[in-house]
């Protein structure tokens, strides 16, 4: 396993951000799903070696990030896109990615520039390489963030809400890039968008109030909602959540009344059920 977290607990003052969390992530894309404030970012910051847990153990790429030497070795093989990735807005795209490459200890100027050009090309930024970051759109800036994370072809890629704030087309392109990045390496990403998770992840962990409520595959989570989603002409009082769809039919999620017309569940239905039933905790192998 590239990422192995056991019993990780982290508090900020009186707020417990993570409460005894376990997580394993190997090759492929692992998604952390949950509402804002559920603890996803705290766990990703721990995996990115930016934050240390108060309790629990973490192993990354076979090393212990609490040991300074190991931490440096891990950071050499790690790419990280923070949730609010900031930029030196006066830098051009090339200068900024080059700056991060220097922080990643790429000392040979020519080799470093080659690598900067490679990741800029991978993320479709070649045409704006000489533009100042302050002149770019939000979606382009997010690509710059991904480009710096891909520097050095890292074995472990940590992406915090990589698609937040992107329009549908940009999200699609980003999904393609992340999916491509997930081939042959470990990607751990967070999102509160079930569509992103369903489209990208081979495994998911659902977070709620600092705890893991589900771990397994997207199909296993979706299967949790089998027999609990039904269509009707009006909102059902028995439903945990219900909304009117585009074709005028109400989609109800919860315990169906007798004779209800059951329909196939989606990952979002299962996620809503999981969030709405606080006692439920499911872990798949």
């Amino acid at each position: 396993m590239t990422v192995r977290v056991r019993g990780a607990t982290k508090s900020f003052g009186r707020t417990t951000a993570l409460d005894s969390v376990d997580l394993d992530a190997g090759q492929g894309v692992t998604g952390l799903l949950g509402p804002n404030g559920a603890g996803k970012t705290t766990l990703l910051r721990i995996i990115a070696t930016v934050l240390a847990p108060d309790r629990g153990t973490v192993r990354l790429l076979g090393r212990d990030p609490s040991r300074p030497d190991d931490r440096t070795r891990i950071r050499e093989r790690l790419g990280y896109l923070p949730q609010d990735a900031g930029f030196h807005r006066g830098f051009t795209v090339f200068e900024f990615v080059d700056y991060v490459a220097i922080l990643k200890q790429m000392t040979d100027r020519r080799a470093r520039h080659d690598e900067v050009r490679r990741v800029i090309g991978l993320t479709g930024l070649a045409s704006v390489s000489a533009k100042r970051i302050r002149a770019l759109s939000g979606g382009m800036r997010r690509r710059v963030g991904l480009a710096q994370a891909l520097l050095g072809d890292p074995e472990l890629l940590v992406l915090d809400e990589p698609t937040v704030g992107l329009d549908p087309e940009q999200r699609l392109r980003f999904r393609e890039m992340i999916s491509h990045a997930g081939e042959g390496r470990t990607v751990v990403l967070s999102s509160h968008q079930t569509e992103d998770i369903a489209a990208l992840c081979t495994r998911i962990a659902v977070f709620h109030q600092g705890r893991v409520r589900f771990t397994g595959t997207p199909n296993e989570l979706t299967a949790q909602a089998a027999g609990r989603v039904w269509a009707g002409t009006q909102r059902s009082a028995a439903a945990l959540a219900a909304w009117r769809t585009g074709d005028g039919v109400y989609r109800n999620v919860g315990d169906p009344p007798a004779g209800a017309e059951l329909i196939p569940p989606t990952l979002e239905d299962a996620y809503l059920l999981l969030m709405g039933e606080p006692d439920l905790e499911v872990t798949h192998s």
């Binding site: 440096t72 030196h88 922080l103 940590v158």
Partner: peptide, 18 residues
């Protein structure tokens, strides 16, 4: 003030040197 602080913290560059 440092917009790239989070990225810098996850990088292997020597903290003392920086």
């Amino acid at each position: 003030l440092d917009p790239t602080r989070e990225i810098g913290l996850a990088a292997p560059y020597s903290g003392l040197r920086l």
